[in-house]
Write a protein that binds this DNA or RNA. Structure first.
Lengths: 193, 193
DNA sequence: CGTTGAATATACCGATCGGTATACATTCCA
DNA sequence: TGGAATGTATACCGATCGGTATATTCAACG
């Protein structure tokens, strides 16, 4: 049986290279030859490990999700209440977020054809974030309708990160933090302004 | 002097074909030969009219903006107060929105390289929508901070349409309509739930 | 010791990419 | 009447695309 595709050293380097290139330049704009060269690897090795570019794309998305999720949970474990804001902070301070490129998953969804296996990874990633957000909001605002509020905050977050790749600014994400804080404390909104 | 690139019959057909193909399949995934064939035109004619694929992409984005903007203003002219909701409706009922593909501008931004001229068209399009939204909110909610509220609603809208291309559903945009209506009447929010 | 797996290097495949060249037909207008 | 302008048809360009073939090296392991 073959080694799982991303555990071998060359496989890891390929995944690293693909992670940088696919995110920065887009999936369709990056050829497998460039990925292989960047990884210091032969195309043969790339195809031995991943079989096809489509599969490499799926692995790229999966790893991006896993890395971000680990980073999120790490932040949540260390965060004080309200932890909903810690999730927003994870968006803001994401170490692999290029403010000129925005969300890797939204970008990938714009490129991948309808039936591509990567689309399922993208949907599942966003679904997971949305679900985690609902948990945190139930924790932070016990009285409110957690799911309604989660949808509200989720849309704010996704709107802000989608516009990262257009404006190239992170200002909107900090705005989302403020708005989220206000949404978590509905009692104070009428008095403050 | 040459005819402006999009006024000639063949030029229009090229722009129509590009509009459908670039939006549905993505810009990088569609070759100029396919655009020309779909338009029933020679590649020579395409290059006579547009000079390069990059320029064709810019024209595609410009026309998409102009068409949507005309449609928006038409809807606003016929709408009753609060017209902010009419802008949300323009997102929802946009006749050229493919619910599986989401926003053409967000998708294009995911594909175009940093310096591409199309990026300026995209930024300007979104800036225009954001500004129009602020106008309408000032009209509908005279007491509130129009710009804060406009940013809030804008983020909701953009989050929803960005997720069209992921979920393939328009449900989120109707959620945004409800949320926007509530944001416009802050007096009633505490009582209803 | 010999096999197996992971890697290298290089060359190749047909297809498509964006873009150009050449030659010819039509229409309209000064 | 006679060029522009608009268009068609076809062929071509070098480069790159995703993917494959062949042959070789090296280390680990039973």
């Amino acid at each position: 049986m073959a080694t799982p595709a991303d555990t071998t050293p060359a496989g890891q380097r390929i995944l690293d290279a693909a992670g940088g290139l696919f995110y920065r330049d887009g999936i369709n704009a990056v050829g497998v030859a460039l990925v292989a060269d960047t990884a210091g690897v032969t195309k043969k090795t790339l195809y031995d490990r991943f079989g096809s570019k489509d599969e490499l794309v799926v692995r790229y998305l999966r790893r991006r999700h896993e890395d971000w999720w680990a980073y999120l949970e790490e932040g949540l474990a260390a965060a004080a209440s309200p932890r909903t804001l810690a999730l927003v902070d994870a968006y803001i301070w994401h170490p692999r977020l290029d403010v000129e490129r925005g969300c890797a998953f939204i970008n990938a969804a714009a490129e991948l054809p309808p039936g591509h296996a990567g689309r399922a990874v993208i949907r599942e990633h966003k679904r997971s974030v949305r679900a985690r957000l609902a948990d945190l909001i139930a924790e932070d605002a016990p009285g409110a309708d957690a799911d309604d509020l989660a949808e509200h905050v989720f849309l704010l977050l996704e709107g802000a990160i989608a516009h990262c790749g257009i404006d190239g600014g992170e200002a909107r994400m900090r705005t989302v933090r403020d708005l989220t804080a206000r949404l978590l404390h509905p009692s104070a909104d009428g008095a403050a302004e």
